[in-house]
């Protein structure tokens, strides 16, 4: 694991890292990957995927509550709001 690898992962994970964080993460992640690579010593067999004891369940597509019942409580937790909207920074640049 090189510094650039850690910086790339941080970009993918949307986290800004300070230089000293990159250094310490490079060391610790290298050592953790060394340890977990143990699983590669186990011979596993490629088996077709089966549905296990637990599987995904969908609920009926129906109204579960009054419209607007939770809106205020949820919007109140947003860092910035404008009326019934959550406010965020512009996503597209001026020339796009």
């Amino acid at each position: 694991m090189k510094r650039e690898d850690i910086e790339h992962l941080a970009t993918l994970a949307r986290i800004d890292l300070k230089d000293e964080e990159v250094a310490s993460l490079t060391d610790s992640i290298t050592s953790i990957l060394g340890y977990v690579s143990d699983v590669n010593a186990i011979t596993t067999e490629e088996k077709p995927k089966e549905v296990g004891a637990l599987y995904n369940v969908m609920r009926e597509d129906e109204e579960t509550h009054e419209p607007g019942q939770y809106t205020e409580a949820i919007l109140n937790e947003a860092p910035k709001r404008e009326g019934q909207y959550i406010q965020v920074k512009k996503i597209l640049g001026d020339n796009e």
Binding site: R14, I15, D16, L17, I32
Partner: peptide, 19 residues
């Protein structure tokens, strides 16, 4: 995410992103 997460959380997120 840089400000809000501590060192161990960042480590596990990056490790997870890698694997």
């Amino acid at each position: 995410r840089a400000e809000g997460f501590g060192a161990e959380v960042k480590r596990r997120i990056l490790l997870g992103t890698y694997v």
